[in-house]
């Protein structure tokens, strides 16, 4: 059975959650997107997988870096340590433009580093590109 692709997104900013959702919609991707308001919520959700209770593994993680409680890097570190998740691509989508930050997360195993674009059109292009590259 062909199932919908699943994208798990940790993003604390409600506006960004809305914009990202609309951007994916604009691309007419058929992915199922689940948003988490911070890293901790996402990790809680992932616990069920570790216990073997949830069956469907996500296809892509999109993480913001600066989040309350558990931040993006901590989530990234956790994902790359877990056998069941470590092969799933992780994309960092953040406001940061710092090269060091980019280098840092790429070494930690992130598949891509993107700065949140300042226009919606760019965001649409970006999500399309990410989807094409890592999911289809």
């Amino acid at each position: 059975m062909i199932r919908n692709k699943v994208i798990l997104i940790a993003e604390d900013d409600a506006d960004d959650r809305l914009l990202i959702k609309e951007a994916f919609e604009e691309n007419q991707t058929s992915a199922t997107i689940i948003f988490f308001e911070n890293g901790e919520e996402l990790l809680n959700y992932l616990k069920d997988f570790s216990k073997g209770e949830a069956a469907i593994l996500p296809d892509l993680f999109i993480l913001d870096l600066n989040m309350p409680k558990t931040n993006g890097k901590e989530v990234l570190k956790y994902l790359k340590e877990q056998n069941i998740f470590k092969e799933i691509p992780v994309i960092i989508l953040t406001t940061s433009k710092l090269r060091e930050e980019e280098k840092n997360v790429l070494t930690m195993g992130a598949a891509g580093f993107y700065t949140k674009p300042s226009s919606f059109t760019e965001l649409v292009d970006l999500t399309a590109s990410v989807y094409r590259t890592w999911i289809v």
Partner: peptide, 21 residues
Amino acid sequence: ASHDLQEPLRKIRAFGERLKM
């Protein structure tokens, strides 16, 4: 300035675009 000031500006632009579209 890079983070907190740019954030609202980015939203203004993005939603402005959405409004226009």
